[in-house]
Design a protein around this nucleic acid. Structure first.
Lengths: 336, 336
DNA sequence: ATGAAAGCGCTAACAG
DNA sequence: CTGTTAGCGCTTTCAT
């Protein structure tokens, strides 16, 4: 069913049907009625592809993430999608496993589809193909994963990661801990470097030591922390608390602690970051610094939509916007 | 950059460029070289929208699920997407919250985009708008959530849910349990009814009782099981094992058990279904019957692609195919 | 082997 | 207020 057929049925021209459809122009009330009836009768639905081809806008956006299996992303994805849907946009989900080749291939595919914009969580430490998107004129929002140098050049959405690290550590200190270790995420991600910087600063502000052995570094994904935790606790002077730079890391650390027969929080307290849904379900429930993942996704989508609309109106991208979310301490039983 | 410009640069017609691009037709080797050079020079990328409009095929598929936040779906989604990508398809992610209005709206949007096919996990107990998709000519695969009456009428992919319930219960019985309760999922989903049927049959086969009070029914999502578990364990004759019809339910049940001060598995054993990634991380690690979610997603995608290709070649959909996955018992420490 | 031209279905500028 | 028409960028007959 297409415009032409509807027009024929209504006995008018295609432009008239088009006009009543998108109501931009005045149409005689009677004609409008006739056309409406024909539309209803035929159950006509416009062809979005043809519209896009004509309008140069596809009403689709691309959400590019490492993997939806990473516990961070389902909530964020919902935030993006809900806002997108409410604004008449549909979202292509692109899992890249942080593989630059996959990212590039997806970007090409999306460009071919005249994608309206990109929301990207990529490692981004060395990703010119991502950053150049904006200079090529594509609306782009970087979420959580980007470099300091991106700020002001690209729209960004993120938590205050330094503060997160500081608050988590400060809380541990306030509750009486003095030997605080860290399960540190990958060094190439600014967000982890920032969380660690906050941790280090809190330690320094309280005159607490930070022996090198107290820093567990990510190897083999989060599972590596299982063995490192065991080593860590075998130290002569083991920590009495562990700041985990993400909840999934905390789950692995707690798992190792359990297997060592150590009690949480009596023997060692554990705090995470994110407040993923499982955080309240593990035993003991995990104290954590929440990230508002859903809201961050929604903010990213809104930021993208703002760019899309601005570009449509003015032909150029608006000045980059930076959105920072505050985080909350959620106290549960993994700390005392 | 479009065909015309490339053609102009190469000094040939658009049809020639088109021909070298999709290599269906013979082109003089020299001309081909000239054209290729022009393509490389201009960094030409075809417009997929125009192609789709012309070809009546969009190379996009729709994955419609209740919510990506449900722990079942991230893995399944990866399975779908990986296969799709390898076959040149991109996927629209549609979260519906099982809201029929949202489902319908998404379906309309997708049809307008000339979607190539749908993979759907919907409540489907009363969803004519989903089932009619196939009669309207759209390739369709139902995953895990469908009615017995769908089998043979639509492509389906699912686990052997009866067997899952039977195996889980049988394992509990074999390890010495006699009073086995069930955390039963929503009655309107065949998959849960089947798991329960397996549970009931195993009980019957072993002459074990099944008092009504041993059946916890889902209310308020999984959280309702928290309170029900507390009631359940307050019974005069409380169960010594609980079969949870999904891992997330098991997490809630274990949480309640912990809060009651009960030991797992000494006081009560717990078994789940799914083997989601968190199953091995909780304390104690959860014994469960695995579902091969990733493979199920991949199978669904393959099944859909098969339909798309068959339809392209023959103009009609192929006979529906049914894929059933077997499941494995994964023994961990929540049972003894 | 290559080019011209007819659309795929739609929007919008232009005429009337 | 309504109709005609020219594309959006591509594929594919049909000529040559």
């Amino acid at each position: 069913m297409n415009l032409k057929q509807v027009a024929a049925l209504a006995g008018v021209s295609v432009s008239t049907v088009s006009r009543v459809l998108n109501g931009k122009s005045y149409v005689n009330a009677e004609t409008r009625e006739i056309v409406m009836k024909a539309i209803r009768q035929t159950n006509y639905q416009p062809n979005a592809l043809a519209q896009s081809l004509k309008m140069g806008r596809s009403n689709t956006i691309c959400l590019m993430i490492p993997s939806i299996e990473n516990m961070m992303f389902p909530k964020l994805t919902r935030g993006v999608e809900d806002i997108a849907r409410k604004n008449g946009l549909t979202v292509f989900l692109c899992n890249t496993d942080e593989d630059a080749a996959v990212e590039k291939a997806y970007i090409e595919t999306m460009k071919m589809r005249w994608i309206d914009g990109f929301i990207v969580c990529s490692i981004a430490s060395d990703a010119p193909h991502i950053r150049s998107l904006r200079t090529e004129g594509y609306p782009l929002v970087l979420v959580n994963r980007f470099e300091a140098s991106d700020i002001g050049k690209v729209d960004t959405v993120a938590a205050d990661n330094y503060q997160i690290g500081y608050d988590a550590t400060q809380y541990l200190i306030r509750t009486g801990h003095k030997r605080i270790a860290i399960a540190y995420g990958r060094d190439e991600l600014l967000l982890y470097r920032e969380r660690r910087r906050g941790y280090l600063q809190a330690l320094a502000d309280n005159g607490l030591p930070c022996p090198e052995a107290y820093t567990m570094r990510e190897t083999n994904g989060n599972n590596g922390f299982y063995y490192q935790t065991k080593e860590l606790m075998g130290l002569d002077n083991p920590p009495d608390a562990i700041f985990c730079s993400s909840d999934p890391k905390a789950f692995v650390v707690m798992h190792a602690l359990h297997d060592l027969g150590l009690r949480i929080p009596e023997d060692v307290a554990v705090i995470g970051v994110d407040n993923v849904s499982m955080a309240s379900m593990v035993e003991p429930p995990l104290t954590t610094i929440s990230q508002h993942l859903y809201r961050m996704g929604a903010a990213a989508a809104n930021s993208l939509i703002r760019q899309i609309e601005y570009k449509e109106k003015n032909g150029v991208l608006p000045k980059p916007e930076r959105t920072i979310f505050s985080s909350d301490l959620i106290v549960r039983r993994s700390t005392n």
